[in-house]
Amino acid sequence: MIDVIYFSWIRERIGKSSESIETRAATVIELIEELKKKDVRYSEVFSDLGSFRVAINQELVNFDASIVEAKEIAFFPPMTGG
């Protein structure tokens, strides 16, 4: 099981801040494709890869990163700190 966490407008549009997911996906992009099949909220949120970022175990990664060692995967829009 992997904890998937959502922030900002992604959290709002999906309607939850986190969920535990059982997956056979090997990479982030495979996981995204799996999530998109869940329902229209996911397919809309994840339709544009340029509009969000991903972190595995609290570290920024690319979409082709392996999720084999992942305990926690977070999806969020580009950061607006400062």
Binding site: F7, A55, P77, P78, M79, G81, G82
Partner: peptide, 30 residues
């Protein structure tokens, strides 16, 4: 400042006249 703006995981939302809007990251910041 440059790195905190684009690499620290914060997201700002502005509430203006009761309307909520997420602040979008600027390409200039990246």
């Amino acid at each position: 400042m440059d790195y905190l703006k684009s690499r620290a995981p914060f997201w700002k939302k502005e509430i203006l006249n009761g309307e909520e809007n997420w602040v979008e990251a600027k390409s200039a910041d990246e």
